[in-house]
Design a protein around this nucleic acid. Structure first.
Lengths: 225, 225
DNA sequence: TTTAAAATAATTGTATACAATTATAAAGTT
DNA sequence: AACTTTATAATTGTATACAATTATTTTAAA
């Protein structure tokens, strides 16, 4: 048999899915904008078959909507939806830290501690993109430790939508410093294996970013119909 | 223009999706069983195109899995997954009652009260199917009142999986009587607009059915690989 | 001019054909 | 006989063709 690992093939569908997701998150496809399959397929230089499958995934992810007549459009942005998403996310992140506490090892704690250090460093450099990346890594590392596949699956589903809003938000240095404090607190409770407070703190942390997200969204809001 | 409402066309894809979901929930397609597109398409008398789209929905719903080589199989059943699902559901149901309390009217309260009466009646008749139906209606009515589209969307997604386990479980009369008590309590707190206790009670109610579900699943478990 | 009806065009939904990949069987080698 | 290698078959992934539906334009009537 062949030595090298089988390069798990990337399908045209997956490429289209990721590309479109990116385009929607970046706003290159605007909220509310109608989608014509033929046209979009030509633009991506693929056929309609994998494109339709990609669009269907995006539909289930909540990034595009399908109206009764079958026509699709980029999902509008709404404050109501942002609120709903963040409350759900806060609960899921709560579930996930709680499970993570059951499984966490010293190696994991070291890694999370390291991530917080990196986070601080990025803040001192006012490098917002890096701040965002390390913050994300902190959370995602906890996802992995939790071993809760289902919750993680839902969290990633939510993240597709959250990323749309995250992109619009530009944090202040004050916000990021507050954020690093919260990460520290969460880690503290994880180390203590104090589930109640870890969950509590995590929920507060997520909901804290909600108000900020709402502000940035207000001016972009589109009506849903 | 035409008078009558446009009969929103049902697509082959949707029919296939619902049919397959039913078959999986009923166990007609067994956990772990491999799926061959061509064969299944012939059986359903449709082409592979809409079948593939239906299968993709089922994949995202967690009812089928796709392995690295593209082959699909009916998702196995596992205790770990049941646990994860119920914890997530309990949180989502908590979110939803909390929101429902903000919107609830006297009419809604009357309806929920009525459903509990029907539930009691079904219990006295030991009609388990009807018990199940009214219990479901009680929860789904709260979904609607909440107005939380996102949470409801996730709940329905979970329900596809939960229904697989629900079907295996056969409750005792004792269980159902306990259940009706819990419904009453939940409604009580809703009427009082006591969010904290309503959420608490709802979570307990959902998690209460977890242990029962676990028992029934234990003998059906298949290993995931 | 406005409204309704009919015809045309554009778009989505499904079936089929083909290409690419993966699994299975057969043949060859040590 | 066990292991590779090659050839064959089966299966999935993508493109194209066609059918069904929906939207738009044109024509006709009031």
């Amino acid at each position: 048999m062949n030595e090298r690992a089988k390069a798990s093939r990337v399908s045209t569908k997956d490429i289209a899915h990721k590309a479109l997701r990116e385009m929607i998150i970046k706003g290159e496809l605007e909220p509310g904008q109608p989608i014509a399959e033929e046209e979009l397929a030509k633009e991506l230089q693929i056929s309609r078959t994998p494109l339709r499958e990609a669009l269907q995934i995006l539909e289930l992810e909540g990034l595009v909507n399908r109206s009764l007549n079958g026509r699709m459009n980029v999902a509008p942005i709404s404050i109501q939806e942002v609120k709903e998403i963040f409350v759900i996310r806060s609960n899921l992140e709560g579930i996930v830290v709680e499970d993570a506490i059951d499984n966490i090892t010293q190696k994991d704690i070291d890694h999370l501690t390291h991530l917080i250090k990196l986070l601080k460093m990025a803040i001192s450099l006012e490098d917002y993109e890096t701040i965002d990346r390390f913050g994300k890594q902190f959370h995602e590392y906890i996802y992995t430790v939790s071993g809760n596949k289902m919750a993680v699956k839902f969290l990633y589903q939510l993240n597709s939508m959250i990323n749309r809003y995250r992109r619009l938000a530009h944090k202040s240095i004050g916000d990021t410093k507050q954020s690093v404090k919260e990460h520290k607190m969460i880690l503290h409770y994880i180390i203590q294996k104090d589930k109640i407070n870890a969950v509590e703190e995590m929920k507060k942390h997520i909901l804290g970013s909600l108000n900020q997200a709402i502000k940035t969204v207000e001016k972009y809001e589109h009506t849903q119909f």
